[in-house]
Simulated scan of single mutants.
Amino acid sequence: MSSAFFVPDGSSRVELEIKKSRFIGLAARVDKKSDVQKVLEAEKQRYPDARHHCWAYQIGSPASPRMAAMNDDGEPSGTAGKPILNVIQHKDIGHIMVVVTRYFGGIKLGAGGLVRAYSAAAEQAVSELALTHFEVTKEASISCDFSQEQYVRHWLGEQGISVRDCQYSHVVTIQFNAPERIAGALEDLSQRPEFEVEVEN
């Protein structure tokens, strides 16, 4: 399973009008539960007189999220949060939250109409979102003699990896974030006696 996936790069906001009800969709990045609360509170403050702020999110890889949740915020059960989450789950995007705010326009949409409306607002918000590539990494280090430092820096550069920190004592310890894709190459390097490789569990 790949540890690379797409995440939101910024946020997007869309607005739909369906039978006089306004549906405002926001898609944004969330990395932890406190981010979820911040995004939701910001939307409630932005639209304080709206009747509903329905939402869903998933944190982590879209293939196996660490956390996912949804909320209908007073709409009939299963007509808002679940359709929003369904959109998210079919988009192959991680660390994402969608909030759909509704201003009731006086005409009831029925359960099917609500599902379609919340799905449409979520779909449009997500489709207008700019995305960036994200790789899950582990903290790692390579220790070596001073004479090998340039070799290690060059080797990391060839892997497309930046040095996070470098410490000098009786040896040089170069610290970096190691994506899963270089696990095999790191293992090969660790077999050489002149290098000591450490990767967090």
Rank of each mutant, 00 (worst) to 15 (best):
1 M>I: 09
3 S>P: 15
6 F>I: 03
9 D>S: 11
11 S>F: 14
23 F>N: 04
34 S>N: 12
36 V>N: 10
38 K>L: 13
41 E>G: 04
46 R>C: 05
49 D>N: 06
52 H>V: 07
54 C>R: 00
56 A>Q: 03
62 P>W: 04
74 G>Q: 11
75 E>C: 01
76 P>V: 09
79 T>W: 01
86 N>H: 13
87 V>R: 00
88 I>G: 01
91 K>S: 04
91 K>R: 11
94 G>Y: 03
97 M>Y: 01
98 V>C: 00
101 T>E: 05
102 R>D: 04
115 V>E: 05
120 A>G: 01
121 A>P: 02
122 A>I: 00
123 E>G: 00
124 Q>G: 08
125 A>Q: 06
131 L>E: 06
134 F>H: 14
134 F>G: 07
135 E>K: 03
138 K>Q: 15
139 E>S: 13
144 C>V: 10
144 C>W: 04
148 Q>T: 08
149 E>V: 09
155 W>L: 08
163 V>H: 02
166 C>T: 09
166 C>Q: 06
170 H>G: 08
171 V>S: 14
172 V>G: 02
173 T>E: 09
183 A>L: 09
184 G>W: 05
186 L>D: 12
193 P>F: 12
193 P>S: 14
194 E>C: 08
194 E>K: 09
197 V>E: 08
197 V>R: 11
198 E>S: 13
200 E>G: 10
